[in-house]
Simulated assay, not measured.
Amino acid sequence: MNIEHLLKVKAPIADVYRTLTTEKGLAAMWTRDLRVSEDVGGVSEFRFAPDDDKTDMRIDQLVPNQKVVWFCIDSHPEWIGTKISFDLTETAGVTTIILRHMEWRDVTDYYRLCNYHWAMFLLNLKQYCEKGIVST
């Protein structure tokens, strides 16, 4: 079972890709307490206050200006073993992002909450890429 979202961003694909693969970009859309690996096989670490929740993502695939894939190795138990992908395409200066959070075991309240939060994080990404607004 997957969570899936589609978002259109009025920004060049290179800007969106950079947002999804750098500390500066991910800090603008997700959390400021992070350490990001920019290499396939590396692990990016994300921390969320006030509960000091953490999420560690192994970088499984980076295709510049096309695709980013993470594999969750540590987080809330329902996230561990799931994959997150961002597929990117650009037409006439508008980048389309398809986010998939894959391999959920069940539809739970936590699944529903995460579905909502992914939508909000994508909105943050849109505001950052289009207007330079840092939302976290």
Rank of each mutant, 00 (worst) to 15 (best):
P64E: 15
I98V: 14
Q127G: 05
M57P: 07
I59N: 00
S44P: 00
V40M: 01
E4W: 01
M1S: 00
E4H: 01
E90N: 00
R35Q: 11
L6E: 14
W79R: 05
E23H: 11
F121W: 13
A11K: 07
M102R: 14
T95G: 08
Y116C: 11
L113C: 02
D74P: 01
I73D: 10
A92T: 11
L62S: 09
I73H: 01
T22S: 06
T31G: 03
T31Y: 04
D74W: 10
D56T: 06
T89A: 09
D39C: 12
P12C: 07
I98M: 01
L99V: 03
A28R: 01
I98H: 03
W70K: 00
R58C: 06
L123I: 13
D56R: 09
I97Q: 08
S135M: 15
H117A: 07
G41T: 12
K10C: 10
A92P: 12
M57R: 06
Y110N: 04
P77C: 03
R58I: 02
R58T: 05
A28S: 12
K131T: 06
T108W: 01
K126C: 06
V94P: 03
V69A: 00
S85G: 12
F46K: 02
M57G: 07
R35F: 12
Q66S: 14
N65R: 11
R100K: 14
E103F: 14
D60M: 12
K10Q: 13
V43D: 04
L6K: 15
V36L: 12
F46V: 06
P50D: 10
H117E: 10
C129H: 00
D51P: 04
V16Q: 01
H5Y: 08
